[in-house]
Design a protein around this nucleic acid. Structure first.
Length: 277
DNA sequence: TGCAGTGTTGCTTC
DNA sequence: CGAAGCAACACTGC
């Protein structure tokens, strides 16, 4: 599930511990999650001996820059978890499918119940060429992401506002949880047609994107479901949720509304029918 | 017991 | 071309 705030928390946590460690060995029992290079042997050989330089993020992708101008990219998709600790001899997590053993005796692991995660190695200076990253829209918390810019992206688009927010080509990092939370905050109905949204309403949505994502990063992510930090600790945003998975509960705006759940594009969508118009 | 629902993405189909 | 559906996989909860 990790969305922008969760991935940001993971990246900040890792940036504190990983730089300057060296990769000793690599193990996997599900080689299909490794997309590049083609064979696991090559993947392993490329990583062994490399030093970790820097941890970054693009949208929901984690980028680990290594010595030798290589970058390890990890996308956790639905149920991927990044773990860091003395995991080498600790088979407690049956869903760990990739283990990277480090020079301090600890390991970086990717656990993934549904095995949707994606891992690849790519030259750092050629990351721009990766289709996966090229398509991703602007970072919503970047200072370049102005209201003008948001309006530009919005112009001429069709369809429903929630779908627009979740489309990574438009804005990076928003998924099902934060789309519901942002629209609750902005008072906009998730199924509203884009073309019928006024400038003033758009401004509210823009403000809500920044507000909700900032608050969620401060809370270290949302552990309503199974998200955990690399240390195994939970985030706190699940205690602050207003819409997502609050079906049947009174709206916190105290407007008499009850959070309703509908299905849109196959995804659960939660909103207050009173103040979200 | 059994089947709908689950955070994502990208491919297929119409 | 765009929109919608579904596959990738495995578990939880009603």
């Amino acid at each position: 599930m990790p969305e922008l705030p969760e991935v940001q928390t993971i990246v900040s946590d890792l940036e504190r511990v990983l730089p300057n460690l060296k990769i000793k060995d690599v193990w996997s029992d599900w080689k299909k999650i490794i997309k590049q290079p083609k064979s696991f042997d090559e993947f392993r050989k490329k990583l062994i001996g490399k030093k970790i330089i820097k941890i970054r993020r693009k949208g929901k992708n984690i980028l680990i820059d290594l010595s030798g101008d290589e970058t390890l990219l990890i996308h956790q998709k639905m149920t991927g978890h990044i773990l860091y600790g003395p995991l080498r001899d600790d088979p407690y997590n049956q869903y760990i499918h990739l283990l990277i053993n480090l020079s301090n005796g600890y390991s970086l692991a990717l656990s993934d119940l549904r095995k949707f995660a994606k891992v690849l190695i790519w030259p750092t200076n050629k990351l721009d060429e990766l289709e996966d990253l090229k398509k991703i829209g602007p970072e919503p918390l970047d200072k370049n992401f102005t209201f003008e810019k948001f309006k530009e992206i919005f112009a001429g688009k069709k369809g429903k506002i929630k779908h627009f927010l979740m489309d990574q080509k438009n804005i990076a990092g928003i998924g099902n949880i934060y789309a519901d939370e942002i629209l609750w905050e902005a008072g906009a109905h998730p199924l509203r047609e884009i073309q019928k949204i006024s400038g003033a309403e758009l401004k509210k949505i823009y403000e809500a994107i920044k507000k909700v994502l900032r608050k969620a990063i401060e809370a270290k992510g949302d552990s309503m479901s199974d998200y955990r930090r690399p240390s195994g600790e939970k985030g706190n945003y699940q205690n602050m949720q207003n819409a997502y998975r609050m079906t049947g509960q009174k709206c916190k705006k105290k407007d008499g509304g009850v959070i309703t759940r509908v299905k849109s594009g196959g995804r659960g969508t939660h909103f207050c029918p009173v103040h979200q118009k």
